Simulated assay, not measured.
Amino acid sequence: MSAKRVVMIVDMQNGVFATPRLQREQCVMCINQLTQAADRVIFIQHCEEGGLEAGSEGFALLPELVQPERANYVTKTACDAFYKTELAQLLEDNGISEFVICGCATDYCVDTTIKTGASRGYAITVAEDAHTTANRAAVDAASLIAHHNEVWRTLIMPGNPVQVKSTETILGEWQAN
């Protein structure tokens, strides 16, 4: 039987958070709530030179994140968690066709993974209060997060719309099923 409550956490790593991110504590709190209620947890970790090398302190997940004993870990080198990784095979091997996504950075790796996953047919729910980013030169982090939540809500994907819900709503739906 496949897991019904799957959460995918993108790039919540020490090195990524060397740049301040909006509402880190709230984001981590929501992610931990999802992680503790999930049947399966998949951590995505970015790997690259300049502080995110595999095995480095920068590559490590934030220490305040709950990491279940049976969590899966996928290493990526691009914004897209599906690009040249074992993620699609992991999902297929475990009969996973739907998941909740959260993490960092809203406007880069989270966004790219959502769009790629939806185009591959995965049913994706974004935890709207469990992803974060940094202020950018052209726009502040809060505006980026609000903008992306709206873009994902209205993303044209006939037959497979992306859902955008609060952590509280997701947890309530999981408890009801």
Rank of each mutant, 00 (worst) to 15 (best):
N160C: 08
R24K: 14
L87H: 08
T75E: 13
S143T: 13
L22P: 02
A130S: 09
G51D: 07
G51C: 13
I9W: 00
E48T: 06
R70F: 04
Y83M: 12
I114L: 04
D140H: 07
R120C: 15
E49C: 10
D111W: 03
I145R: 02
V126H: 01
G51F: 03
I156F: 09
A141C: 12
A134R: 05
A78Y: 15
L22K: 09
G58H: 04
V100L: 00
F43N: 02
W152V: 12
P158E: 05
E168Y: 05
L65G: 12
I114F: 01
I9A: 13
V28W: 05
W152M: 14
N135I: 05
L52F: 09
I145Y: 05
L34M: 10
F17Q: 14
A71W: 12
R70H: 14
T35Q: 02
P68S: 08
Y108V: 13
I114W: 08
I101A: 01
E53R: 00
E64C: 07
T133S: 10
S119I: 12
G172W: 07
I124Q: 01
R21C: 05
M8F: 02
A37I: 03
G55T: 09
E173R: 03
V162D: 04
A3Q: 12
E57Q: 05
E128R: 00
I42R: 04
V164Q: 00
K76V: 06
T154H: 09
R21P: 07
K76Q: 11
C47F: 11
A60W: 01
G159Q: 04
L22T: 10
R70A: 14
D107I: 08
N177I: 13
A78H: 12
T113V: 07
V16K: 06
R120M: 11
I124D: 08
A146E: 14
L144K: 07
E48W: 06
Q13E: 04
I9C: 03
E53S: 00
D107N: 12
C27W: 05
L171R: 01
C47T: 13
Q36I: 08
A18W: 08
C30K: 07
D107T: 09
E98F: 12
K76T: 11
A141G: 04
E48K: 14
Y73F: 14
Q26M: 12
D111A: 08
M12H: 05
I96C: 10
T106S: 08
I145P: 02
W174Y: 10
P161T: 10
A134P: 07
I44V: 14
Q36W: 00
F82P: 01
E49Q: 15
S2R: 15
I124A: 08
T77C: 14
Q67A: 11
I44T: 05
R21A: 14
